[in-house]
Every structure is written in C-alpha cells, then in structure tokens.
Lab assay of single mutants.
Amino acid sequence: VCQVIAMYDYAANNEDELSFSKGQLINVMNKDDPDWWQGEINGVTGLFPSNYVKM
C-alpha cells in the first residue's frame, strides 16, 4: 500500500470507480493493471486512472 496525490479532479463513470478532487491523498491498494489502480479514500474503494495521480 502506498499513497499518491491526485493531480486532477476525477468523476467516476461507473459504480466500481473512485471519484476524487485535485490534491486529495489516495491510498493505493492494487496496481495489477498499469492504467487503472484500485484505491481507497475515507473508507471508499474503487478504480481510478493511474495517469491522474503522482507519487
């Protein structure tokens, strides 16, 4: 598990995705897919595009 910072706002398009705002910290749970990582914010988990965040 690592933390990343959102570089942009992201609004989920599907129920399994994670919405976040620019500057939010996201706990990364899974990086099996290079493009879509699984993350957690405040107890909510979902997929998000890895190119929207930085380490």
Rank of each mutant, 00 (worst) to 15 (best):
V1W: 03
V1L: 04
C2H: 04
C2A: 07
C2N: 15
C2P: 07
Q3G: 04
Q3P: 07
V4H: 04
V4E: 03
V4K: 02
V4L: 03
V4A: 12
I5N: 04
I5W: 09
I5D: 05
A6N: 00
A6R: 01
M7R: 07
M7T: 11
M7H: 06
Y8L: 13
Y8N: 14
Y10A: 02
A11T: 11
A12T: 11
A12F: 02
A12I: 03
A12E: 04
N13P: 06
N14L: 11
N14R: 14
E15F: 06
E15I: 08
E15C: 10
D16H: 07
D16W: 06
D16A: 14
E17V: 05
E17G: 11
E17A: 04
E17P: 02
E17T: 05
E17N: 03
S19T: 11
S19Y: 04
S19I: 02
S19Q: 04
S19V: 03
F20V: 03
F20K: 01
F20P: 01
F20A: 00
F20L: 08
S21R: 12
S21K: 14
S21L: 11
S21E: 08
S21V: 12
S21F: 06
K22P: 05
K22I: 09
K22Y: 04
G23Q: 04
G23D: 12
G23T: 04
L25D: 15
L25V: 13
L25I: 14
I26N: 02
I26G: 01
I26R: 00
N27G: 06
N27E: 15
V28D: 01
V28S: 00
V28G: 00
M29S: 11
M29C: 12
M29P: 02
N30V: 10
N30H: 13
N30L: 12
K31S: 14
D32N: 14
D32Q: 15
D32I: 09
D32R: 10
D32C: 08
D33C: 15
D33F: 04
P34H: 04
D35Q: 07
D35Y: 08
D35M: 07
D35P: 03
W36R: 12
W36E: 07
W36M: 14
W36K: 15
W37R: 01
W37K: 00
Q38C: 12
G39N: 01
G39K: 00
G39V: 00
E40V: 08
E40G: 05
E40Y: 04
E40D: 10
E40P: 00
N42L: 09
N42T: 13
N42W: 05
N42P: 03
G43S: 12
V44S: 10
T45W: 05
T45H: 06
T45K: 12
T45A: 10
G46W: 01
G46S: 02
G46P: 00
L47V: 14
L47P: 03
L47A: 13
L47W: 09
L47Y: 11
F48K: 00
F48S: 01
P49I: 02
P49A: 04
P49E: 03
S50N: 07
S50Q: 11
N51G: 12
N51I: 08
N51P: 11
N51T: 11
N51M: 09
N51A: 08
N51C: 10
Y52N: 07
Y52R: 12
Y52C: 11
Y52I: 12
V53P: 01
